[in-house]
């Protein structure tokens, strides 16, 4: 499969980024572990569904996460099956999730992770926001992805969401064209 890219990417790779697991103490003194999501698929989906049902609907972006357990599970299945996933864990509970999904119609025909572009999204439960967990999740996901061979990552963010755009820029994302209501950003890892 030949890489075909439609977006503009920075010339230079960003990073280096930390590889999970990483332990981080948030400003409330809570010990947060950033780790790749492993173990069997059912357990992972259940644990993440428990997190997403608590997600404040006001924090949804561009229609995700969906609401309702069934729709959350349906949405998570392909993300966990085909994507790279890092979670923020506090004790036994997941409090944040960062994910990369391959931007291809046919993920099964993908030979190498470097063949395709990957779309990124990140979610942090309301009670854990504004404490740097988002940045930790983002950096650890990019570290894990880079280790796996991923090179081109993009995301969209609502154009008026200045704080999110600033966070992505600090990590190394650059603006790459705007698609109306959404701003596209991209980063090169390798």
């Amino acid at each position: 499969m030949r890489p075909t890219r439609t977006r503009v990417y920075p010339d230079e790779p960003a990073g280096p980024f930390p590889s999970p697991p990483t332990t981080y103490e948030d400003p409330e003194g809570r010990e947060i572990v950033l780790e790749t999501l492993e173990g069997d698929a059912e357990t992972a989906i259940e644990a993440l569904t428990d997190m997403y049902v608590q997600f404040d609907p006001a924090d949804r972006a561009q229609g995700i996460p969906p609401t309702g357990e069934d729709r959350i599970r349906q949405w998570l299945e392909p993300i966990l099956a085909k994507g790279h996933n890092v979670v923020a864990r506090h004790g036994d509970d997941f409090v944040g999730h960062a994910t990369l999904v391959p931007d291809t119609d046919d993920p099964d025909s993908m030979d190498e992770d470097s063949d395709v572009e990957w779309e990124l999204a990140i979610f942090v439960l309301q009670d854990y926001q504004r404490g740097g967990i988002g940045t930790q999740l983002l950096e650890n996901l990019l570290g894990a992805a880079c280790d796996a061979g991923v090179s081109h990552v993009w995301l969209t963010v609502e154009r008026w969401n200045g704080p999110a755009i600033a966070l992505y820029e600090r990590v190394g994302f650059e603006l790459c064209g705007t698609e109306s209501f959404e701003q596209e950003m991209s980063i090169r890892l390798r």
């Binding site: 561009q62 969906p66 779309e119």
Partner: peptide, 11 residues
């Protein structure tokens, strides 16, 4: 919908 499931509205 994007690969992630995000709604995208065009120009």
């Amino acid at each position: 919908r994007s690969p992630m499931g995000k709604v995208r509205l065009g120009p």
